[in-house]
Nucleic acid binder design. Sequence first.
DNA 1: CTATGTGAATCGATTCACAGCC
DNA 2: GGCTGTGAATCGATTCACATAG
Lengths: 213, 213
Amino acid sequence: MNTGNIPKSTAHRISLYLRQAEAHRDQNRTTVSSEQLAKALGLTATQVRKDLAHFGQFGRPGVGYNCDDLIQRIKSILGTDQVRPVALVGCGNLGRALATYKGFERRGFRIAALFDNDLHKVGKRYGDFIVQDITKLYFVCQRDRIRMAILAVPAHAAQDVADQLVGTGVQGILNFAPVTLNVPPAVAVSTVALSMELEQLGLAVRSMQRDRQ
Amino acid sequence: MNTGNIPKSTAHRISLYLRQAEAHRDQNRTTVSSEQLAKALGLTATQVRKDLAHFGQFGRPGVGYNCDDLIQRIKSILGTDQVRPVALVGCGNLGRALATYKGFERRGFRIAALFDNDLHKVGKRYGDFIVQDITKLYFVCQRDRIRMAILAVPAHAAQDVADQLVGTGVQGILNFAPVTLNVPPAVAVSTVALSMELEQLGLAVRSMQRDRQ
DNA sequence: CTATGTGAATCGATTCACAGCC
DNA sequence: GGCTGTGAATCGATTCACATAG
């Protein structure tokens, strides 16, 4: 199956294939072709086949890919065939929205604990969780073997909290603060900066306008 | 300056350069070198120079790039030297968090209007705005010449609202629903799917574990 | 006849090596 | 000595063309 050396570009599309395969299954289709996947996602059929070939050949010529197979295989590569606990730090507006977001559960992630350093928030309940003091971070992450965390704190506090997270043994951080975090190479960081997304979108709009000028 | 044909890979880094240049300026430095930018962002110095060369040569050998110049030039490329109005549709947890997010203003975007189809929410105030009925979408977007929108509605409603947005003349949609939107080629869509971000992060963590096994 | 899987060719992005400027 | 800008080389990803299986 060779899950070890998946190209970066392929890896970014895996989640899309999973979602699309699930959509097909939910419409009671048993198979899906590379052509169908490509059309739905705005890719080429060849690209889809090359991608899927990276994790074993299980498509059937003349038929396509079995949806359940595809889903199972992608989940096993992503590691979302089992539910993983995630710590959420920061209970501002964004943090609270993420805490109550139902989409994570359905895709193999469970918010396992909620932290903030503001003593006015500690003890309050959001969604199914009680906000804990950030000083409990190390204890809880160790106890519950938490490997991933979502960072939804203000920019000025992000590096400090990231350092604490690294100290607990967390190996992946999903960062919503608009700063570049400095972490050891063994820790993965993925930053989602909302303003940057808007900037990129604006750029795409502008370049389209130029195209059709 | 040649802003027309910036490679996609470069475009995605422009926002990072802007942020970093601002950080340098805020520390009262007047210039910044490609080496410094590269180190802070985890890139190579050559890559940074090639990128910056795409929008005119204004670095000074032996000195570096003037921070203010760099900031000004990037903003003019991104079009964020003027403030742009953005419509926000969907006042669930995420929508409300985005509505009150202060970071957009500082980077050239202004939430100009807030919409929802839930009549229990229409008329309520979040941040500085009053939620408007989604039936007003066309009127308001036309009147205020709104070109970009943020879509923070449930997945099942996303395509329908996207169609309405396209109908108002919106040219760019920042979509937070975990679905692939179908829009005309003249409309740009950027999707931020939170679960997918976690999946990608989990994959990165797993592949690192394999590396050091 | 339909659709996968893959070597070969193409295309694009990154890195190297270095010439030129401060 | 320090740093930018850029052609040439390398590396990786996409597309093409087609052999092969249902």
